[in-house]
Design a protein around this nucleic acid. Structure first.
Ligand SMILES: [Zn+2]
Ligand SMILES: [Zn+2]
Ligand SMILES: [Zn+2]
Ligand SMILES: [Zn+2]
Lengths: 145, 145
DNA sequence: TATATAAATGATAATATTTTTCATTTAGAA
DNA sequence: TTCTAAATGAAAAATATTATCATTTATATA
């Protein structure tokens, strides 16, 4: 068993979750791919070796792994289905209030240095980036007191 | 009519889309809120003043506005439903191949200066950030030739 | 202004995704 | 080995999104 796999398994155990063969397989699959996977893509892979598994089990296992912060969510390419007027038409990003959903735009991200470093280190041809800051707007800060 | 609203309307016209009362209302609503909205939240608002509107019209209008790049998508708080093992448990981000979904992790984002600037400028209390780079991995670059 | 026409709408159905419910099975403690 | 709470999977329900199609309408043009 890979070291990282053992770590995930141990974390599950430590939090009192049982280690079922289904969960083992989900973990094995997640550990052994470099790609991000949707619940359904994951289901299809696990299903190959364990045809009896239910899609719900995938959802439930992902839920636990997310709660224990053992997996990350990827946004690029997908859609969270929430939209906003593009106020400055130029390149900009958002500062978002997690409480009320208010959005403030900002320009001047300057990630070019980081981008160049990553390009060199990984060989990726970088085309775009996604940057958001999450916090509380002034109004929601006051309400929280 | 607000200046920005007129700009959106003009852009629609310029691309040959008809200006229906339904579209006007969707645009008005998007223009007049600082919050990001889901299709359904938008539907509920427009529905108040135009009870006959269909949810499909909201979807279709958003689709057009997105294609013309007149709206932005927001990810914070939502879920794109794609997951990945958290390989370094420390704070890190992702470099994602838009072609094959391969993900490379990187650390050292250093956004603290930008974060501080935004905090001062907007009064937000910033708690988190979302950062992803999107591009083509080496393998997919070769395939593209 | 009246007319023609392609585009847009909304009702409905279809598809896709995610969550609930519940009877049965099972991992792990004792 | 036995017991019990947790986990599973089938099925249904709830949500979200997209497709189909008859009807309506915005706009170009006569
Ligand atoms: Zn940027
Ligand atoms: Zn997202
Ligand atoms: Zn790739
Ligand atoms: Zn960071």
């Amino acid at each position: 068993m890979k070291l990282i796999e053992r770590e995930v398994v141990t974390a599950l155990r430590r939090h009192g979750y049982k280690l079922t063969p289904q969960r083992r397989l989900v973990i094995q699959t997640v550990v052994s791919t470099q790609n991000h996977l949707t619940p359904i893509a994951l289901y299809e892979r696990v299903h190959q070796v364990y045809p009896n598994i239910g899609l719900v089990t995938i959802y439930r296992t992902l839920e636990i792994l997310a709660k224990l912060k053992l997996i990350c969510e990827v946004h690029a390419g997908g859609s969270c289905g929430s939209y906003l007027l593009k106020r400055p038409l130029e390149h900009h990003h958002h500062l978002i209030c997690s409480e009320c959903g208010a959005v403030v735009d900002f320009t001047g991200c300057d990630l070019s240095q980081l981008e160049q470093r990553l390009s060199l280190e990984t060989g990726f041809e970088i085309n775009d980036h996604l940057l958001e800051f999450i916090g509380l707007c002034q109004a929601c800060q006051k309400e929280a007191t």
